[in-house]
Nucleic acid binder design. Structure first.
Length: 471
RNA sequence: GGCGCUAUAGCCAAGUGGCUAAGGCAGGAGCCUGCAAAGCUCUGAUCCCCGGUUCGAAUCCGGGUGGCGCCUCCA
């Protein structure tokens, strides 16, 4: 099956043909670790998690790198606010980020480089740029990239480099030769700065250089490209990725990436979520209310390139949709999986190989669920059928990353042991009443349970209960 | 000011030149059930507006209108 991706630089859907046959190399811009991760970080991580899962399912030996920017103005500001030192602060947010991504079932990147651990590569790339005259040092020791030396500058974002100048909101540093030039290295600016001693002088790297340097450090590529796919949020296209591309081009003579992928934004009630607007929805807060698996399912229900408008109404309807998978899983439960149904596998993979059409993939899952339920209605004791359904659900988990929970835990999320005992006691009482055909008593008990937020289902295998959604 | 994305049923959301426009949620009807729930079946839109290209367009082109984004740190 041919993987197709939308290349956001070419602006079209193209077949994915990797640099090396059967191998795929991906680099995604990760977070700057000065604060908690928000839903936007989750969306990005999920988008590229789907990418690696799909490529692996297709048999590509896939290497995924995602960096942590662990030195930056905002981090330094946070250090002075909290009194924490650099490592303490950044490691805390890295750990939080990773555990929150775990909760979303995002697979860990194979390589997780940090800027502060890549100074060697950064230093050598900046040195090369200085030697070739693509970079210059100003009087205070800052080193800037000279965008005029890169004739291809602008090819990533398609922005005309001169037209916007008058309107640009960028504040121009006095000694910059061109407003578009950007800092590669920031010279030490005083006691409160965090500085590293290198051949470039005391200072710290600019934001853009770390990605280019780390990619060169960890990947080989060929004479034309270093990696196959470079990804990140749509806001990174300019200037971040434009600058990365320029740095790599000028220091190595080849392009940084063969394909570019950018995920859309998460909005809250139709507005961009951003720190300056104060409407950030932190992942930790979402995870304190909703299961990570539900957030994952909800967030991948919209194609990764579209904007995502986060709201609780839609989240609840996503919950109901995911519930159906778990009810099916419950029906086939003690059964061990056999082989995934070939047609189902191909449909699901077909959706995902079409530029990660996860919306379509979810509809394929829905169809599988209702067809399976229908078959089980007709042949409740067909073991081979149950095994195949179990295998199908396992494949959903492999490719899309949900459906691996134990169904009872899923439906009884957030219920304490005490509540559980009480609920099960009441159910027993009700079953007794039912046996005696004392239906008014049975219904009374059911009402009581309903008030506790518990729904009952009488099935051939006994009475099952679920916690009703209260979100 | 420049560049770009987007507009599909009550809601969410695929589709991007051609059989009856996926799927989900909500709603309605039925089967099942002691009654329910769950599950199953049936049930809804001609695709923002105008013009054009075409045998044929939601799908391409032009012009409107609305929403969003990038051009400053941002996933």
């Amino acid at each position: 099956m041919q993987m197709k991706i939308y290349d956001s630089v070419k602006k079209e859907k193209v077949p994915f043909i990797p640099i090396k046959e059967k191998e795929a190399t991906i680099y995604v811009c990760g977070p700057t670790v000065y604060d908690d991760a928000h839903l936007g970080h989750a969306r990005s991580a999920l988008s590229f998690d789907l990418l690696t899962r799909t490529l692996r399912a297709l048999g590509y030996r896939t290497t995924m790198a995602k960096n942590f920017t662990d030195i930056d103005d905002k981090i330094i500001k946070k250090m002075s606010q909290t009194g924490m030192d650099l490592r303490e602060l950044t490691q805390m947010y890295i750990d939080k980020y990773l555990s929150e991504m775990d909760a979303l079932n995002v697979q860990r990147a194979d390589i997780e480089p940090k800027a502060t651990e890549s100074l060697d590569a950064i230093e050598s790339m900046i040195s090369k740029l200085l030697e070739s005259g693509c970079a210059y040092k100003i009087s205070n020791g800052d080193i800037y990239f000279d965008t005029s030396k890169d004739s291809s500058y602008g090819s990533i974002s398609h922005l005309n480099r001169d037209e916007n100048e008058n309107i640009s909101r960028v504040c121009h540093a006095d000694e910059k030769r061109d407003p578009k030039d950007f800092a590669l290295w920031k010279a030490c600016s005083g006691e409160n700065d965090v500085c590293f001693n290198t051949s470039l002088g005391e200072g710290r790297p600019g934001w853009h250089i770390e990605c280019s340097a780390m990619i060169e450090k960890h990947f080989e590529g060929d004479e034309k490209y270093t990696i196959d796919i470079h990804g990140g949020g749509a806001d990174l296209l300019f200037p971040h990725h434009e600058n990365e591309a320029a740095q790599t081009r000028c220091s190595t003579g080849h392009e940084i990436a063969k394909y570019w992928m950018h995920n859309g934004f998460v909005q809250i009630d139709g507005e961009k979520m951003s720190k300056s607007l104060g409407n950030s929805f932190f992942l930790k807060d979402a995870l304190s209310i909703y299961p990570g698996e539900l957030l994952r399912f909800y967030l991948i229900s919209v194609h990764y390139r579209n904007d995502f408008n986060f709201n609780e109404v839609d989240l609840l309807s996503a919950k109901k949709r995911l519930d159906k998978l778990y009810r099916l899983k419950m029906r086939v439960m003690p059964t061990k999986a056999s082989c995934v149904n070939k047609e189902f596998k191909n449909s699901l993979l077909g959706a995902m190989t079409d530029d990660l059409n996860s919306s379509k993939a979810l509809s394929v899952v829905d169809t599988m669920i209702s067809e399976s339920n229908e078959k089980l209605d007709n042949e409740p004791k067909n073991k081979a059928l149950k095994k195949e359904i179990a295998a199908n659900i396992e494949f959903v988990d492999t490719l899309l990353g949900f459906g691996s929970s134990e169904p009872y835990e899923w439906f009884q999320y957030g219920i304490s042991n005490e509540e559980r005992v009480k609920i099960e006691q009441l159910i027993e009482e009700r079953n007794l009443a039912k046996k005696e055909k004392n239906y008014s008593k049975a219904d009374e008990i059911r009402d009581e349970l309903s008030k506790m937020g518990v729904s009952l289902m009488d099935t051939a295998e006994g009475t099952k209960w679920e916690k009703r959604d209260s979100i």
